Computed example of a mutant assay.
Amino acid sequence: MNQQKYQPNQIIDPKVIKELRDKLDLKQSEMAEIIGCNRSELSLIENGKLIPDWLERFIRLSRLMSQAGYSWEDVIMKFPEPTTPRASEQSAEYQYK
């Protein structure tokens, strides 16, 4: 995974990621599973030592949307629970419907 170390005045304030997890009363392992990373990676993100490429892309897209006057609610009409397992979770018998 392409990763870079956090630099001051960079894309995210890592404290907000931890505040979000605390506000939702999630353990690092629980939030990591929800967002699709591992617990140690989330720890590095929360401590400002890592910005994963997926987070950087998400933030850049969010900024572009904001500049154009769009929000995520404009793009994603409903917020369904993910129903397709990740490739690592799929069994040999799993078939897409």
Score class of each variant (00 low, 15 high):
Glu89Leu: 08
Ile35Asp: 02
Gln4Ala: 10
Arg39Phe: 01
Ser29Trp: 02
Gly48His: 04
Glu41Trp: 00
Pro85Ser: 04
Lys97Cys: 06
Leu55Asn: 01
Glu19His: 08
Glu19Met: 10
Cys37Trp: 00
Gln7Gly: 01
Leu44Phe: 01
Asp53His: 10
Asp13Phe: 11
Gln10Asn: 11
Pro85Arg: 02
Met31Ile: 03
Val75Ser: 00
Pro85Asp: 05
Ser91Tyr: 03
Gln10His: 13
Glu93Asn: 14
Pro85Phe: 02
Ala32Ser: 09
Leu61Gly: 04
Pro85Tyr: 03
Gly69Pro: 09
Ile51Val: 15
Glu19Asp: 13
Asp74Ala: 03
Glu46Ala: 06
Ile35Trp: 02
Gly48Tyr: 05
Ala92Ser: 14
Thr83Ile: 13
Met1Ser: 14
Arg86Ile: 01
Gln28Ala: 05
Ser43Asn: 15
Asp13Lys: 14
Tyr94Leu: 09
Ser40Asp: 09
Leu55Asp: 01
Lys78Tyr: 12
Ala68Lys: 14
Pro85Ile: 04
Ser88Cys: 06
Cys37Tyr: 00
Ser29Met: 07
Ile11Ser: 09
Gln67His: 10
Tyr70Glu: 03
Thr84Ser: 05
Leu61Arg: 12
Gln67Glu: 15
Asn9Ile: 01
Pro80Phe: 07
Asp13Ser: 10
Ala32Ile: 05
Gly36Asp: 01
Leu55Gln: 03
Gln90Ser: 05
Glu93Tyr: 12
Arg63Asn: 13
Asn2Thr: 06
Ile12Met: 07
Arg60Phe: 04
Asp22Cys: 07
Lys27Leu: 14
Leu61Asn: 09
Ser40Thr: 11
Asn47Ile: 00
Ala32Arg: 03
Tyr94Met: 05
Gly48Asp: 05
Leu61Cys: 09
Asp25Met: 04
Lys27Met: 13
Tyr70Phe: 15
Asn47Ser: 12
Ser71Tyr: 01
Tyr94Gly: 06
Pro52Cys: 03
Arg57Cys: 02
Asp22Met: 10
Gln28Val: 01
Tyr6His: 14
Gly48Asn: 07
Ser62Pro: 02
Asn2Gln: 11
Ile34Pro: 00
Lys5Pro: 03
Ile51Thr: 14
Glu81Ser: 12
Leu42Asp: 07
Gln4Ser: 12
Glu46Leu: 04
Phe79Ile: 12
Leu61His: 07
Trp72Met: 08
Val16Arg: 15
Glu41Leu: 08
Glu73Asp: 14
Arg63His: 11
Glu81Gly: 01
Lys18Asn: 10
Ile11His: 04
Asp13Ala: 10
Asp22Thr: 07
Ser91Gln: 11
Arg57Met: 06
Leu44Asp: 10
Pro80Glu: 09
Trp54Cys: 03
Ile12Gly: 04
Asn9Tyr: 13
Gln3Leu: 08
Arg21Gln: 05
Met1Leu: 08
Glu30Ser: 13
Lys49Arg: 15
Gln67Met: 10
Ser43Pro: 01
Leu50Ala: 05
Pro8Ala: 08
Trp54Tyr: 13
Leu50His: 05
Asn47His: 12
Val16Phe: 11
Ala68Asp: 11
Leu61Gln: 12
Ile11Gln: 08
Thr84Cys: 05
Leu20Cys: 05
Pro52Asp: 03
Arg63Trp: 03
Arg39Thr: 10
Ile59Cys: 13
Ile59Trp: 04
Phe79Arg: 12
Pro52Tyr: 06
Lys49Gln: 14
Tyr6Cys: 06
Asp53Leu: 09
Glu19Thr: 05
Pro52Ile: 05
Ser62Glu: 11
Glu19Ser: 13
